[in-house]
Design a protein around this nucleic acid. Structure first.
Length: 905
RNA sequence: GGGUGGUUAGCUCAGUUGGUCUAGAGCGUCUGGUUUACACCCAGAAGGUCACAGGUUCGACUCCUGUACCACCCACCA
């Protein structure tokens, strides 16, 4: 016999092992079955499982288990990401702390440090693997991939070379986002904007003497960058400055440097902000850089870089060279003050760009970097030449890639509209090194080689930079499907590899990409870009975006605040993975954040236990009757079944229908809730209750098996464990069982509605009893007036037992009752419970009066409708019929209430 | 500045093309229960003018417009 309470700790690991050893997770590329593939978004190789992962794993596992049970060849490919910047900075910090090495980069050098990081990854990779298993993830571990696997690295190089040859990848000297803390460039998408209380300084840029009229004032929040100015920008229509446009000036700055600036006119200037004139600092502002590019002809002098990569002022800052930005600013402002050029400063809210990785300010600086051109029309897609941007737009617009919820398509388009060339090179060491080699001296004249493999010959030096981690993860859906053995053969081209890899042929494009909406741009968009370009295929047909997990108070969960942070592993140990999964799926709708808290999870732990005990009950009933549940294979003749049996069969057929359709349409929350309610509110509370003492074992076992199957994607562990007790003799694991299909002949809506009537009657009696404080053990009699005498009489035994009646009288017509009876009206049925001595007549009268009032109010509203000509003309017939029925029922009820009230008068 | 989402019982949320919604669930609250599946339980009850204001419609929680508040995303106001 099963233990009294379900013990997930004693079950889950054992069941997982069973699955893994059975080979149920493994997909077969040669199978004739329809493919269903999901690429698992790879967690950081050094990561720890958090709730974000848990949600992703739960959702994807449901998709995959559902597909597998429906007879599809289901592949869920797991893997990990090398997470370039994140991993490198973690290891560097670790070395600094543990080995007391101040600068691990210079201390160890490139080769040794990369080795140390690899070692660290190797060691910690096992953690996340075992944690993914803890969630019950049915992924194919035989196909596990890592972004730095040789085959995947080769794909990275192949794509880089292909893009380079197509002119999509270029090297350019441009203003990039420099993370001064991490000492690397980052892409535009890795910047966050925060509002900060800033100061706006207004100062005399040009004196009255210089302009020959009014002095020219300029406002800035970054005075120190003015040292790198080569122009002043005004609006072309700004009359205040018309006469200055095109003139050149020498400006002396604090710090002892002099700059040559030109006044130019550009329509991007906002005349209303500050003084309407701004200093142009091309090397420390992307906007200014672009303006400079537009006006290069007019501007005589070159811009200067005054802030270095180290975050200190360069030699161009004169006396301020070597100072930090903040110090330089203080000195510079003081200098302006001393020269009498400064107006009173103002406070204002300034948008500050910070790095999403280091949370430190991002400095725009000029740097020679690698970029992907998103506007060049060299990509062939559906017979047309398009830019990467256009292909990305096209596949979503025409529906090849569907985004759930679809409103995110709009967000996606908006992002693409603003997309600029993607800076892909990083100055860190951990990752895929840019596959470019140089030979010779000097920057410009050096010989350059771009190739998948290093060039032959001596003297070649590889580009020191590595690629943005999203470059490689952008390939994830297909690079993971490339045959690793074939990938070792460099005589094959990328096209050959794709063509010859059976996994790629079978499983790409993948079916669903499920991930958080927060990486729609970072990752989802990049996969679309990379896949369409490199393989000519979309990466996935559907994108399912889940929301972020929040605390009960609606705050983001953060590791730094353990009080609000729920650790999935702790929960699994406490409540089980099934409960955690349910609690994250039910009440969660795609694209919306949701709150998770202990009580909610506790509720689903209770549910899992409820299912466990319902199964125990069925088992006990079988035992009592000496029926072995395993031997039950057939249902008895439907005509011989009791009302409850026919009703539960009907309900379970409807449940199959709804669950199947709901899952097909990705309405996981709704289906989860439906299953929950079926199991608890219908199956346990009514069907099992009625089965006591007169169980039909075949039906019990049959319905329970249906439940286990339907619930398996949500609660794989407990259902698999219970399946062992209930499966038919020849059956194997539940994970590979066939999903139930609807049998129309088992439906019996009449039985179901009759059964519902019985339920309503019992509820009515229970309610009357409780209202009057009848002792729970005491038996009372009841009198029912209803048209369905036959039905109720046939169910008399059930009603008497469950409602605890001494005797039950069923009549078609109302008779006179003793005053001392309480009445309940439900669906045309009149239920009276005579309660001699227990009834407070006044209370009973009040209750009936109140009910009568409600009915009359309702009646008025329906009558208004039914006498409304327009309603009768416009509303569909069935609605009118329905309203008429409601009217009749309400009238009947009102009449009965009135009659009943009269007996109290 | 542009965009998106939210606002439904004390709390967390459902509510699929407008009409079985006289608006549901879970938790919490209250009343009462150790009848051998389950106290991780059972029975019963209380609790909502569906943010606000208009509009469309025979009919609106559901569609449209506007307002308020909250949240998020994007953007070159130095």
């Amino acid at each position: 016999m099963l233990p009294k309470a379900y013990d997930p700790q004693a079950t889950e690991d054992r069941i997982y092992k069973l699955w893994e050893e059975s080979g149920a997770f493994r997909a077969d590329a040669r199978s004739a079955k329809e493919a269903f593939a999901v690429s698992m978004p790879p967690p950081n190789a050094t990561g720890q499982l958090h709730l974000g992962h848990a949600v992703m794993l739960a959702l994807e596992d449901i998709f995959v288990r559902f597909a597998r049970m429906r007879g599809k060849e289901a592949l869920w490919l797991p893997g990990t990401d090398h997470a370039a910047i994140a991993t490198e900075s973690v290891v560097i910090k670790k070395i600094q702390k543990e080995e007391k090495v101040k600068d691990p980069r210079t201390h160890y050098g490139r080769e040794k440090l990369v080795e140390k990081i690899a070692e660290f990854v190797e060691k910690s990779q096992g953690t996340i693997r075992s944690q993914i298993r803890k969630m019950g993830s049915s992924c194919d571990w035989s196909r596990e991939r890592y972004t730095l696997d040789p085959a995947l690295s080769r794909c990275v190089n192949e794509v880089f070379v292909k893009m380079y040859k197509d002119g999509l990848i270029y090297r350019g000297n441009r203003v990039v986002n420099w993370d001064t803390a991490l000492q690397t460039t980052i892409s535009d998408d890795e910047i966050e904007y925060v509002d900060r209380e800033g100061t706006l300084w207004t100062f005399e840029y040009l004196s009255a003497k210089q302009t020959g009229g009014e002095p020219l004032f300029v406002a800035t929040s970054r005075p120190e960058t003015k040292l790198g100015d080569n122009a002043i920008i005004v609006h072309p229509d700004d009359e205040r400055y018309q006469h200055l446009v095109g003139r050149h000036f020498e400006v002396e700055w604090p710090g002892g440097v002099t700059r040559h600036v030109t006044v130019i006119a550009d329509h991007t200037v906002d005349r209303a902000f500050g003084t309407g004139a701004i200093g142009c600092t091309p090397f420390h502002s992307k906007v200014d850089f672009e303006i400079w590019q537009r006006h290069k002809e007019e501007i005589l002098s070159e811009p200067l870089q005054v802030i270095g990569e180290d975050g200190l002022m360069t030699e161009h800052a004169g006396d301020f060279a070597g100072l930090s930005i903040e110090h330089c600013r203080e000195h510079f402002v003081a200098g302006l003050q001393a020269q009498g050029r400064l107006l009173p400063e103002e406070k204002y809210v300034q948008p500050l760009s910070i790095s999403y990785r280091s949370k430190q300010p991002v400095e725009p600086i000029p740097k020679l970097q690698w970029f992907i051109d998103v506007n060049k029309k060299v990509v062939s897609w559906k017979g047309k030449m398009m830019s990467l941007k256009e292909v990305m737009q096209e596949v979503v617009r025409c529906g090849d890639v569907r985004i759930i919820p679809d409103r995110f398509a709009k967000t996606y388009f908006q992002w693409i509209d603003n997309l600029q060339d993607w800076c892909i090179s990083r100055q860190i060491w951990w990752g895929h090194r840019v596959p470019v080699w140089y030979r010779g001296e000097g920057d410009g004249e050096r010989e350059t080689y771009v190739g998948v493999a290093p060039p032959a010959g001596a003297g070649w030096e590889q580009d020191p930079d590595t690629l943005d981690t999203w470059f490689s993860s952008g390939l994830w859906t297909w690079s993971t499907l490339i045959d690793p053995v074939l990938a070792g053969d460099f005589s094959l081209s990328l096209e050959d590899l794709l063509r010859q890899s059976s996994d790629f042929r079978k499983f790409h494009p993948t079916s669903v990409m499920e991930t958080g909406y927060d990486i729609l741009f970072f990752w989802v968009a990049r996969m679309i870009l990379m896949s369409t370009y490199a393989t000519g295929q979309i990466p996935f047909k559907t994108v399912y975006l889940h929301g972020l997990v929040r605390t009960r108070e609606g705050k983001k969960m953060s590791k730094s605040d353990p009080q609000t942070c729920i650790d999935p592993l702790e929960i699994i140990a406490e409540c089980g993975a099934d409960a955690l999964r349910m609690s994250m799926i039910v009440g969660q709708s795609p694209g919306n954040d949701f709150r998770l808290y202990k009580e909610k999870i506790g509720g689903y732990r209770n549910f899992v236990n409820k299912l466990w005990n319902a199964s125990r009950f069925v088992l006990l009933e079988c035992e009592k009757a000496e029926v072995d549940p395993h031997t039950i294979t057939k249902l008895p003749d439907l005509k011989e079944l009791s009302l409850a049996d026919r009703a539960v069969l009907h309900a379970s057929e409807v449940l199959i229908e709804e669950a199947t359709q709901g899952l097909e349409e990705y309405r996981l929350s709704e289906v989860g809730e439906r299953l929950y309610s079926f199991v608890w509110d219908f199956f346990c509370d009514w069907y099992l209750e009625l089965s006591k003492g007169n169980a039909n074992h075949a039906v019990l076992v049959h319905v329970l098996r249906r439940i286990l199957k339907l619930l398996h994607p949500y609660c794989p562990f407990v259902t698999e464990e219970l399946w062992i007790a209930f499966k038919p003799v020849n059956a194997e694991l539940l994970i590979t069982e066939a999903w139930p299909t609807v049998k129309e002949e088992r439906k019996d809506p009449d039985a179901y509605s009759d059964f519902s009537l019985v339920i309503a009657v019992i509820s009515a009696i229970r309610s009357l009893r409780a209202d009057h404080g009848v002792e729970p053990g005491a038996k009372v009699s009841a009198i029912i007036h209803a048209d369905c005498v036959k039905l109720l009489t046939s169910q008399r035994a059930h009603i008497e037992r469950i409602a605890r009646l001494s005797d039950l009288t069923v009549d078609a017509k109302a008779k006179k009752h003793a005053h001392a009876a309480s009445t309940f009206l439900t669906g045309g049925i009149e239920v009276h419970v005579p309660l001699e001595g227990l009834i407070d007549l006044e209370k009973e009268r009040t209750k009936l009066t109140k009910e009568l009032k409600d009915v009359e109010r309702f009646l008025t509203s329906i009558q208004a409708k039914l006498t409304n000509k327009k309603f009768l003309e416009n509303a569909p017939e069935e609605v009118v019929a329905l309203e008429k029925e409601k009217l009749t029922n309400a009238q009947e009820k009102a009449a009965k209430l009135q009659a009943r009230l009269k007996t109290f008068a």
